[in-house]
Design a protein around this nucleic acid. Structure first.
Lengths: 240, 240
DNA sequence: CGTCATTTTGATTTACTTCAATGATCGTGG
DNA sequence: CCACGATCATTGAAGTAAATCAAAATGACG
């Protein structure tokens, strides 16, 4: 069922992502229980697949470094991008119900992930009370953030969506202790457009506008945010 | 914390919704464990609130009869409708993470709900293994269906969204053992439009068109589906 | 350095909204 | 039970945000 996977990296107890990852809110003593079941897979290269639609579901994956794009194909065989996942994020939650992955996940950068064997997490509940609680909180949060994202796609203008995306990325980087006003973003305009339900042309025009305003820039994969406040106000604004 | 609530109706063991509700996949013997903690609240009248944004989260609610509208207010203080919930559906899952309800839920019809005290569900895990499993499967499904709905809002045309809505309602009624080609739908065009991210005018025009085509009608709260096949093909069609 | 993918920029189109006005339905109280 | 005001639905005309189409400019990379 869940084949043994080699451990390639440090334990949860030593992980820098404790604050944001799955195991946050667990006690220190619990990590020793969690570690033996968590497999740290060898790095994925850009373009490598973490899981694919139709794969049997055995593991949840915690992103440890790099970035993962999660997407489905619609009936026109076009990608529909569900999200971009950063270190500390858990992916694969939507596959539990059916026992089969419904989305595709690929690395956008050199990426490492921890594999959490789902069956063994259940067993671990006996030894680590609160593990399932944490799991349920995580899923509740995922339900909510899905709703919020859907609301953004439908209620905000193209410009607000773009601004919101960069603010949200920035705040995620900050939560993870990285530089949040200047960071590398290794995704294509095409993918960002897809995620925000826009065209690449529209994204380009909007970025040009933000650049002219001196609010932010995104050139050569490198994002620089100059006027966080302005972007914020713009996203919150009631009138487009 | 979780005040005692009076029981107004039958037990889970006798409930007709076992197949679709939370407790599906539990064993018969487990219902006796579940029953004492589940409170069957007195009926809500049309317009009554089941929970509101900002309420402390203590219970999940299983709709037992009637219909519940779940919505939030955006920054313009307009409703953003998250969904319409039928008997067997569980609402409130998105509030677990924060411990506070983030949406509003109101009855659209005379409605009865079962209140599931969340804290006690956790305790019950010891006696009813598989309860948390079922909970997690339910939440996984909710994550997925949220994604699917978001995809529909962004990828489908207005006409496809309307057709899809009625097909989806029809299939839900069928899954619950009700008549699925003719049913009462006590919601406003305005609310349907809101849910599908359209205007009431657009919904009206589209319903007129479907009526002229002889595919379906919705008059005086009563839905009749005449050409399920045509509606299906239309929703699936790659070209709008 | 040349090729191919990506991004940018401009002109045009379109699906849906907004605005406006009329007609149907609901509910309430006499 | 009917009348009347309010809410809701329909229909048409005009407007608009973003898509699409087309083409040039820039960048990535063997």
């Amino acid at each position: 069922m869940t084949r043994q996977m080699p451990n390639h990296s440090a334990s949860c107890a030593q992980c820098a992502l404790q604050g944001v990852c799955f195991a946050s809110s667990l006690y220190e003593s619990d990590f020793s229980q969690l570690d033996p079941v968590v497999a740290h897979l060898p790095s994925f290269m850009k373009g490598d697949s973490v899981f694919s639609q139709g794969d049997n579901f055995h593991h949840l994956y915690a992103v440890r470094a790099g970035m993962v794009k999660v997407y489905a194909f619609n009936e026109r065989c076009q990608e529909m991008i569900q999200g971009f996942y950063l270190p500390g994020d858990i992916i694969g939650l939507e596959a539990i119900a059916s026992g089969e992955h419904v989305f595709n996940a690929v690395a956008l950068d050199t990426t490492t992930v921890c594999a959490l064997p789902y069956a063994q997490l259940g067993d671990l509940q006996k030894k680590v009370p609160g593990l399932m609680d944490q799991m349920i909180r995580l899923m509740s949060q995922e339900i909510l953030s899905g709703r919020v994202h859907a609301g953004m796609l439908t209620q905000k203008t193209a410009e607000q969506r773009v601004a919101q995306f960069f603010l949200s990325m920035s705040s995620k980087y900050r939560a993870r202790g990285y530089e949040h006003l200047q960071f590398r973003l290794n995704i294509l305009h095409r993918d960002l457009a897809n995620y925000l339900n826009l065209t690449p042309e529209t994204v380009s025009r909007i970025l040009g506008k933000f650049h002219r305003y001196g609010w932010m820039s995104w050139k050569k994969r490198e994002v620089r945010i100059h006027e966080m406040e302005q972007l914020c106000d713009f996203v919150e604004a009631e009138t487009a």
